[in-house]
Amino acid sequence: MQPFRSVTSVAAPLPEADLDTDIIFPARFLLLLDREGLGRHLFHERRHKADAPPFVLDRPPFDRARILVTGRNFGGGSSREQAVWALADFGIRVVLAESFGEIFHANCFRNGVLPIVLPAEDQARAMAAAGTGAPMTVDLESETIALPDGAILRFAIDPYRRRALLAGLDEIGAILADDAAAIDAFEARQRRTAPWLHLARDRLAFFDDLNRAPDGAEPESRAEAG
């Protein structure tokens, strides 16, 4: 994972509450199998609205923003990590909001994106500052936001997640390296105390008849369609 230390950038103001992950990344693009290149579908409906002014992320200087300032309950709803991949692909590394959807919040940390929860008053100041189009600096080490007028806002990040982001930690690698013995021991213990939680071979035989013919393979002919 890409480490995160500090970002200096203009911040895009998006003063709306409840921007859920369906709005951030509409479901029909979930059929794509990759995590790269999803930025072009970010906020798709908002950015392709007929007879509406251009969406904030399509307007200079905010089209190059790496910080997004938005309203309460950002990223609620679906667990789709595509919402974070799309933000990151677009270039957003920091999201400031009053609150976040929980799964979205967790997904951010796994993709080098820093979600910062601010109290209402600080949020309002950050929003106003973003509107000026002048750059602000978000520093994870010191847990501060330096607004364009020099004012400093403080925030707090879970210490584990802060360290993981600063180091660009590979969490899976760390668990495999440090905790494998503890996991082995847990499994051995659980097999004694709650054996039903381990699906044994005889129980899994229930699935043995599953047919192995390709499911939903590419259509070979569309002759029948219509």
């Binding site: 059929l31 199998l33 939903g216 590419e218 259509p219 029948e224």
Partner: peptide, 14 residues
């Protein structure tokens, strides 16, 4: 029938 949508078919077979 095979899935009518090629993207969906690819996702399911994946």
């Amino acid at each position: 029938r095979p899935l009518p949508d090629g993207l969906a078919a690819r996702q399911v077979s994946r």
